[in-house]
Write a protein that binds this DNA or RNA. Structure first.
Length: 294
DNA sequence: CACTTGACCTGTCCGC
DNA sequence: TGCGGACAGGTCAAGT
């Protein structure tokens, strides 16, 4: 479930760990990682030095000094875990609740070996994620990036832009609208539920029926909740870990997500779970009433 | 065209 | 205990 805050947490870790390291070997499973790219992997990845690590939406870009970038999407269960040369950094004695043991393991899809004998593992239990090698200056031309809307946390992403984008999807539910990566890039199921709760909006409300006041609250809430999550290292349900194999703690602070049956922190009504936009959806049925303009 | 649903995968949990 | 089925949820293709 890596969404913007989780991917950003990974980016922060990798941006500290990877620059300057030189790739000497890349081993990968078949199919989804580097499909038909063997030759460019050999030419543009092996021997390359990592320059920076960037994020756009829920995707990461590891820029190399060869003019190419490794583009990674973690989808549901992807992990990018770094291990130093000793390989003991997160072993016994380390004060972490790392979920990740010996690597590679059976979920490892790609291993990058660096010259100093450190390694980067791309693990992905469900194999939905992907890793591609793309010319850096052509990254934005990739179909995935062409479709992305503005960065949810960008300073210049204004409420007016948010409102206009949501209204392009006015016929669908507000939850489906904010999950649409062409409306804004980065929101996933967790932060959609948390943002809608904070803004007191029922997720099944038609997007075009949400009042301007509530839309404004939603815009603020989504950004606040994701910023808070980044500061807490993201949300770890099962699979998600950061670049050093550590969990995030945001879910401890989540108000409704995965809290069905518990009391609403505002009004003590029992939180319920329903299905909206084809996703598991958590609401307080009292705080989030449908079809009421306010 | 606008929107919804199913497929992609694997592991886990729930009910019988 | 074993087993089928639902579920997890990001994105794209296919369906309505």
């Amino acid at each position: 479930m890596p969404e913007l805050p989780e991917v950003e947490t990974v980016r922060i870790g990798l941006a500290r760990l990877l620059p300057g390291r030189v790739v000497v070997r890349a081993t990968h499973d078949t199919a989804k990682s580097f499909p038909n790219e063997s030759r460019s992997v050999e030419k543009h990845l092996i021997g390359a030095t990592v320059i920076t690590v960037r994020r756009r939406g829920k995707a990461l870009m590891i820029d190399l000094d060869t003019g190419y970038s490794l583009v990674v999407h973690l989808k549901m269960t992807g992990q990018l875990v770094f291990r130093d040369a000793v390989g003991e950094r997160f072993g016994a004695g380390h004060p972490t609740d790392s979920l990740v043991g010996e690597l590679p393991d059976r979920s490892t899809r790609v291993t990058l070996d660096f010259q100093d004998e450190s390694k980067l593992f791309f693990n992905d239990q469900r194999k939905f994620g992907w890793m591609k090698l793309v010319q850096t200056e052509l990254v934005e031309q990739e179909p995935f990036f062409l479709k992305l809307g503005p960065e949810a946390l960008a300073d210049d992403f204004t409420f007016e832009q948010f409102r206009a984008a949501v209204l392009r999807r006015k016929g669908t539910t507000i939850k489906a609208a904010i999950l649409d990566q062409s409306v804004l890039a980065g929101v996933g199921n967790i932060y959609a539920d948390e943002g809608l709760f904070a803004a007191r909006i029922h997720p099944a409300t038609r997007a075009g029926d949400v009042s301007t006041l509530k839309l404004k609250r939603l815009y603020r809430a989504l950004r606040e909740v994701m910023r808070l999550s980044i500061s807490l290292g993201g949300s770890s349900d099962k699979n998600y870990v950061d670049a050093e194999g550590r969990k995030g703690s945001y879910l401890t602070f989540a108000k409704v997500f995965r809290r069905e049956g518990q009391d609403c922190p505002v009004c003590s009504t029992k939180i319920i779970k329903l299905r909206v936009a084809g996703r598991g959806t958590h609401i307080c049925p009292r705080c989030q009433k449908q079809g009421r303009l306010s």
